[in-house]
Computed example of a mutant assay.
Amino acid sequence: MSTPQNLKLPIPDVLASAICAANRLIQRLAQPWLVQLVLRLAIAVPFWKSGILKWHGFLQLSDTAIDLFTQEFQLHLPGGPYPFPAPAVVAFLSACGEVTFPVLLVLGFGTRFAAAGLILMTCIIELTVPDGWPIHLTWVAMALAIAAWGPGRVSIDYLLGDRNARW
């Protein structure tokens, strides 16, 4: 007869094997080039969606975009909030950045520049919508990762020679 001390439970071994197999699968799927591509797409989407709504035609801002920067958006600085200086110019620059930077990111062209532009834009957005910091922090983290590790193999920058990924 077996004593309880001699019984070997197969469940921990099966569980350990399943965890190891899952880890190997995740490591195979989460290749750096794929992670870099997904980061570029993930941060491009919200900026593109916001930017495209600001245009009424080619280089023609919608009235709504100008109204937002004139009447709604305020800079939340100490002693403020304060209105945006030159709201039509700020609206135009914002709309240009929100459309141009995502396109650059998706193509992987001027990727680090585009990521830096989105970091700057996110800082300004944070001053405008301070309660949005959880999502803004996520955007900055994604843009910093792109700036630090580069566009990855699936990019025009890589084809042009930007292979300076920092690991």
Rank of each mutant, 00 (worst) to 15 (best):
E72Q: 12
W133L: 09
A116D: 08
M1R: 02
A141I: 15
L107K: 06
T138F: 10
S155N: 03
G57W: 05
L137S: 15
T122D: 04
I124R: 07
D157S: 11
T64A: 05
H136N: 14
W167N: 14
R28Q: 13
A148S: 01
L59K: 14
A16F: 06
F84C: 13
E126G: 02
R40V: 05
L144C: 09
G110T: 10
L120Q: 10
L41S: 00
F113K: 11
V89M: 14
H136M: 11
P151V: 05
P83I: 12
L7W: 09
A145S: 11
L41H: 01
F113A: 12
M121P: 11
K49P: 03
F92E: 12
P85H: 08
G161D: 02
E72M: 00
L53H: 14
R112S: 04
F47C: 06
Q5D: 15
L107V: 04
L160T: 14
V14L: 14
G97F: 01
A21N: 13
H136R: 13
L75T: 07
F47E: 01
P10L: 03
I119N: 01
V106M: 07
Q31S: 09
I125D: 00
L61K: 07
F58T: 07
G152Q: 10
A95T: 03
V140Q: 03
P46I: 01
L59Y: 12
A86W: 10
L75N: 09
V154C: 13
D67W: 10
I19D: 01
R40M: 08
G161S: 05
F47G: 03
A143Y: 03
Q60L: 00
M121V: 13
A88G: 02
G117W: 02
V140E: 02
L25P: 00
Q71L: 10
Y158L: 07
G152W: 09
F113R: 06
A86M: 13
T100H: 04
C123R: 00
C20M: 11
L104S: 04
G57R: 11
A18N: 14
F92H: 14
I66Q: 02
P151G: 15
R40A: 02
F84H: 14
